[in-house]
Amino acid sequence: MTTGFLGAADHFGYADLLSEAEKTVLTRLRCFLQDEAEPVLADHWERGETPLFLRDRLAGLDLVDPAEVRGAGESVRPLFLGFRNLEFSRVDGSLAILFGGQAGMFRTVVATGGSEQQLASWDEDIASFRMTGCFALTEPDHGSDIARGVQTEARRDGDGWVLNGAKRWIGNAAFSEYVAVAAKDADDGQVKVFLARADDPGMDITKIEGKTSLRMVHNADIGLRDVRVPETHRLQRINSFADLNRAFETLRPDVVWNATGLQLGLYETVLEYTRKREQFGRPIASFQLVQDHLVTMLGNTNASLAIAVRLSQLAAEGGVSGEQAALAKTWVCRHMRQTAALGRELLGGNGILLEHRAARFHADAESLYTFEGTDQINTLIVGRAITGHSAFL
């Protein structure tokens, strides 16, 4: 069994596809997460508070677009970005969103939709976290049907725009400088995206309380009442939902990597526990049924890793289709859910205690299972592709 960069959990050595420079950067991240993040996560998770100070320290690690893993004039590889997501999720899902909501989602939406001038003005600041932001698409009455259900309205007014509407479940909104708001143009009915300041008059951001999953992520309800945004802060290359979907094609594989990382971290946690926990005078890892569960968890993790790696390879070769991303998301997250349940089961009553990481992984798996397209929606996307018949209502 391999004991390479990811350890024995990477049963087929997928991390060997990384360059030494990429491994060096990821090792820097891993050490930070183990030494500075892990000791404070359980306490913040239980209190439902974001360890925001960790984001500031992460910004100084040069993880977003590190020059040491790029050739001259080249971008970082999707494979590196995937393994970066995995390293975060291997430790905690909320921390993955704290970083990825900025470095992945917000940056990608701006990079996909912004003009050359806008990118020149903003991208470096976004990558360095000097300009923080989040993306606001989902609405109180529209989640899975948001492509046809955007009700937040943008109305042209002189040299700017006026936004009215509401958004829901917006991660990182409470501590972002900008909110990238998807709104329907009142004149042509097309979706456009506007960078509104979080402290603009008429912008009301309220934390959603009472979550039982990803508790350190401050999801928010956002109300927009006559929020004014200049034309210079409208993303110039997003003039329809189809344009916005170009960003999603880049982002959808991220949740596959996150779900894979969660399984990897849970497997490692549970394997260590079963080796130490004794019942009937011997480690429970020596019991047949425990080994059966562990092997299923390991298989799920490695099959998910294989899919995640292939998605990154496809992205490097020209792009991931919507059907490929949908099948990957639904398959990996279904099996992640099984992995989470088996892992919690193997810890018995200890599996619901925060002193054991399995409790966080088990709870957070439910959020990953739902967002970036529910299991049912992704199934229908793939079903339409393979049959030629749409089963959407």
Score class of each variant (00 low, 15 high):
Thr2Gln: 15
Thr3Leu: 11
Phe5His: 05
Phe12Met: 05
Lys23Asn: 05
Leu29Ser: 00
Leu33Trp: 13
Gln34Met: 04
Asp35Gln: 13
Glu36Asn: 12
Ala37Asn: 04
Ala37Trp: 11
Glu38Trp: 01
Pro39Leu: 13
Ala42Phe: 04
Glu46His: 06
Arg47Met: 07
Leu52Pro: 00
Arg55Pro: 00
Gly60His: 11
Leu61Ser: 02
Leu63Tyr: 02
Leu63Gly: 08
Glu68Phe: 13
Glu68Lys: 13
Val69Asp: 06
Gly71Val: 15
Gly73Gln: 12
Glu74Gln: 15
Glu74Tyr: 11
Val76Met: 13
Pro78Thr: 07
Leu81Phe: 03
Arg84Gln: 11
Arg84Met: 12
Asn85Lys: 14
Glu87Cys: 04
Ser89Lys: 11
Asp92Gly: 02
Ser94Asp: 04
Met105His: 07
Val109Met: 14
Thr112Met: 07
Gln117Glu: 15
Gln118Asn: 09
Ser121Met: 13
Trp122Gln: 14
Glu124Tyr: 14
Glu124Ser: 15
Asp125Met: 13
Ala127Thr: 09
Thr132Tyr: 06
Gly133Tyr: 04
Cys134Leu: 11
Cys134Ile: 06
Phe135Arg: 02
Phe135Val: 15
Glu139Ile: 03
His142Asn: 00
Ser144His: 05
Val150Ala: 05
Val150Asn: 03
Thr152Lys: 06
Ala154Cys: 03
Asp159Met: 12
Leu163Asp: 00
Asn164Trp: 05
Gly165Gln: 03
Gly165Leu: 07
Asn172Met: 11
Ala173Thr: 13
Ala173Arg: 11
Ala174Pro: 05
Ser176Gly: 13
Ser176Thr: 13
Tyr178Leu: 14
Ala180Cys: 14
Ala183Phe: 12
Asp185Leu: 03
Asp185Cys: 14
Asp187Asn: 02
Asp187His: 12
Gln190Phe: 10
Phe194Val: 08
Phe194Arg: 07
Leu195Tyr: 08
Arg197Thr: 09
Asp199Ser: 13
Asp199Thr: 14
Gly202Asn: 11
Thr206Asp: 08
Lys207Pro: 12
Ala220Gln: 03
Ala220Pro: 05
Leu224Asn: 04
Arg225Trp: 01
Val227Arg: 03
Arg228Ala: 15
Arg228Asn: 10
Val229Met: 08
Glu231Ser: 15
Glu231Ala: 15
Thr232Arg: 10
Gln236Met: 14
Gln236Ile: 07
Arg237Phe: 07
Ile238Lys: 08
Phe241His: 08
Ala242Leu: 07
Leu244Val: 08
Leu244Cys: 07
Leu251Glu: 04
Leu251Asp: 01
Val255Ala: 01
Val256Arg: 05
Ala259Asn: 09
Thr260Met: 01
Leu262Tyr: 05
Gly265Pro: 01
Gly265Glu: 07
Leu266Phe: 00
Leu266Thr: 00
Tyr273Ser: 01
Glu278Ala: 06
Phe280Ile: 05
Leu289His: 12
Asp292Cys: 12
Leu294Thr: 06
Leu298Phe: 08
Thr301Glu: 06
Leu305Tyr: 00
Ala308Val: 06
Arg310Pro: 02
Leu311Ser: 10
Ser312Ala: 15
Ser312Arg: 08
Leu314Pro: 00
Val320Ile: 14
Gln324Ile: 01
Ala326Met: 01
Leu327Lys: 04
Cys333His: 09
Arg337His: 08
Thr339Glu: 01
Ala341Tyr: 13
Leu342Pro: 00
Arg344Val: 02
His356Gln: 06
Ala359Thr: 03
His362Phe: 14
Tyr369Ser: 02
Phe371Asn: 09
Phe371Tyr: 14
Asp375Asn: 04
Thr379Lys: 12
Ile381Lys: 09
Val382Gln: 03
Gly383Cys: 10
Gly388Pro: 09
Leu393Tyr: 10
